[in-house]
Amino acid sequence: MSDQDQRPSDRAVLGIHTNTEPGSPLLDGHAWLTITRSGKTEAYGLWPADHPRFSQEAAPPTDVRRGIENGFEATASRYYALTPDQLKTFEAATREKVTWAYTNTCASWASDTAHRVTGERVSASELVGLTDTPRQMRESIDALEKQRRTTQDAPHQPTEAQDHGSSSRSLSTSDKRDPQVEQLLASAGDPERMRTAIEALQESARGQAFAMDASAHAAQLTHAEQAQGDLERARGEMSQQHA
């Protein structure tokens, strides 16, 4: 029996999800993956180790956690039927040691893992490649779903690896953790914690350096005007949060 001939209950289906709404602020929402096998769906997502949700737990070997998003409601999703080899790739990815960082967010992990498994890029890149956000993932999912709608029962069928989007992960993930920036961009954080982090970051030298890094990176791009517009929009949203 071919992969295409398998019944929905027999095949493995990968889902990529976000719970952001169109036009959401920069810091809003979360992104994660699900895998459905034999009619059972389980979620996987990347979380900061110091998130309050895990304050009573010992440090795990990886920041990829299983089952946290099982009860989450997604606002945008895309689904892929997996071959046995693709399923093995996904399973291997969930066992790897991965550390959450401001350049390796929940959206980074979901986007990169889905691309690695399926060959299709659901881009989450924002701030001209400095980070990845769930809201950008929402835009990418919406664009792909307009081309070809998918559901868990009618997923995108396996194809040869082909990058349909773009990856702007131009800065390598650093092992050095900056608590202020990590707290700021922890999309799964609570609103009060996020507000405090924004205020601290805006007043800090690290926050000024972050803005300078973004501006310098934008100047290197061919479409500098568009990049600058992205930065100004992000700064405006941060100011609104601060207000």
Score class of each variant (00 low, 15 high):
109 W>S: 06
41 T>I: 04
95 R>L: 07
36 T>D: 02
112 D>Q: 09
110 A>T: 03
71 G>K: 11
76 A>T: 08
63 D>R: 06
94 T>M: 13
36 T>M: 02
75 T>C: 04
61 P>H: 10
96 E>F: 11
93 A>H: 01
112 D>F: 07
59 A>D: 11
123 S>G: 12
61 P>I: 10
87 L>W: 00
109 W>T: 02
43 A>P: 05
73 E>S: 06
125 S>I: 07
97 K>D: 09
120 E>G: 00
35 I>V: 13
47 W>S: 10
71 G>R: 13
64 V>D: 09
77 S>W: 02
53 R>Q: 09
48 P>W: 06
33 L>F: 12
40 K>W: 04
117 V>L: 04
37 R>V: 15
71 G>D: 15
66 R>H: 02
45 G>Q: 07
85 D>C: 08
103 T>M: 10
35 I>Q: 03
71 G>W: 06
35 I>D: 02
80 Y>S: 01
103 T>A: 07
120 E>A: 14
98 V>D: 15
51 H>E: 05
121 R>F: 06
43 A>E: 01
116 R>A: 14
70 N>I: 07
71 G>C: 04
99 T>D: 12
129 G>F: 03
38 S>R: 11
87 L>Q: 12
39 G>V: 09
85 D>G: 01
105 T>P: 08
99 T>R: 15
37 R>E: 14
109 W>K: 03
96 E>I: 07
62 T>F: 07
37 R>I: 14
106 C>V: 05
47 W>C: 03
120 E>H: 11
73 E>Q: 08
113 T>R: 03
58 A>F: 05
69 E>T: 06
87 L>C: 01
73 E>W: 04
106 C>K: 07
118 T>F: 02
65 R>P: 06
45 G>Y: 00
124 A>F: 03
33 L>P: 00
112 D>E: 12
111 S>A: 15
78 R>F: 02
36 T>Q: 00
109 W>N: 07
77 S>C: 00
67 G>N: 11
97 K>T: 15
119 G>A: 00
84 P>F: 11
81 A>K: 02
121 R>A: 14
47 W>K: 02
72 F>C: 01
95 R>K: 09
120 E>S: 08
65 R>Q: 04
73 E>F: 08
